[in-house]
Design a protein around this nucleic acid. Structure first.
Length: 294
DNA sequence: GGTAGACCTGGACGC
DNA sequence: GCGTCCAGGTCTACC
């Protein structure tokens, strides 16, 4: 077993990352609450597949992976986990903005702000697509079925698979994806995204380091088939851009209970309530202590 | 710019 | 076991 200890910018809380949103429940992630271990079946750039085991370390994250690995593989692993757990993200300006707001009083003490991410934006994009117009059980199902149908198996335990690459999905067809993944009308969008990325026509990963202003980046994301305002805002949050709020039905309901005595509200009401948080809008919304949660 | 309806799946419910 | 209803964002057509 190889063990790496990666240091995070402080404050950092491993469980806050794991529990930041539901990604830890989506294949090929798996979380064991007893040991507080987050597992992920990772596919290296050279095609090798291994299971990563992530645990809290005093100053960041400890990564365990079976077998011997080359220097290049370990370097790739460091880079991947740093991205996934947002180890180098700085939330100082957000915490400063939270001062004086009781509804965000716990943000700094719990080191909230980081959102668990997948190694590739392609995987985050497909999972975001799987959250649209369905219940959470459906999102989990579609992620699990896509991984099981197209991902490369782990040699030691073939029941476990890595998330499929764009090429693996592109080699299939929308009809096959609809049938095996039960993705419904989303299947053509899933296949089209995979084909565009696999062919090199679309460099999704470049969005991670894009210098485009957030509104322009949002426009680019909304050009993708199946990505409307909610999905684009969700991906922007994962990219560390927090200017837009992913407004779904739960968001409308939470804002309705919080400020409008349960009366129906629209996206404009949500935006109005969080306008003052500027570039931290998404974070303020995401980590707000909602009445509806109590 | 706003609204209505179609797109799919799976869970809940009634019979 | 079967049929019906409902929740969930995006897209398109229409006003």
């Amino acid at each position: 077993m190889t063990r790496l200890t990666l240091t995070a910018r402080q404050p950092f809380n491993f469980l806050s990352v794991v529990n930041s949103h539901g990604w830890g429940q989506l294949a090929p992630f798996r979380f064991d609450p007893e040991t507080e271990t987050l597992s992920y079946v990772y596919r290296f750039a050279n095609g090798r597949v291994d299971e990563l085991r992530l645990n809290a370390a005093p100053s960041g994250v400890e990564v365990g992976v079976k077998g011997r690995h080359s220097k290049a593989e370990l370097g790739e692993l460091r880079q991947a986990v740093t991205w996934m757990a947002g180890l180098d993200q700085d939330f100082g300006p957000f915490y400063a903005a939270c001062r004086g707001e009781p509804k965000l009083a716990r943000a700094r003490t719990l080191a909230r702000g980081r959102l668990l991410r997948c190694p590739t934006l392609f995987e985050d994009a497909l999972k975001t697509l799987f959250t649209t117009n369905t219940l959470w059980a459906g999102t989990k199902n579609m992620s699990a079925k896509l991984t099981a149908a197209y991902g490369t198996p782990l040699e030691a335990d073939p029941a476990q698979r890595a998330f499929p690459t764009p090429a693996q999905i592109a080699a299939s067809s929308p009809a096959a994806i609809q049938e095996t993944v039960r993705a419904g009308y989303r299947a053509p969008a899933v296949h089209q995204l995979a084909v565009r990325v696999a062919s090199g026509e679309l460099d999704l990963e470049a969005f991670k380091t894009s210098s485009l202003p957030t509104p322009k980046l949002r426009k680019e994301l909304m050009k993708l088939n199946g990505f409307g305002p909610y999905a684009a805002a969700n991906l922007l949050m994962l990219l560390g851009r927090h200017d837009f709020i992913p407004i779904d039905s739960l968001a409308l309901s939470a804002v309705s209970v919080e400020w409008y005595r349960g009366r129906p509200v629209t996206a404009k009401h949500v935006e109005r309530r969080f306008r003052k948080w500027g570039e931290h809008r998404g974070l303020a919304f995401w980590f707000w202590d909602w009445q509806a949660d109590q």
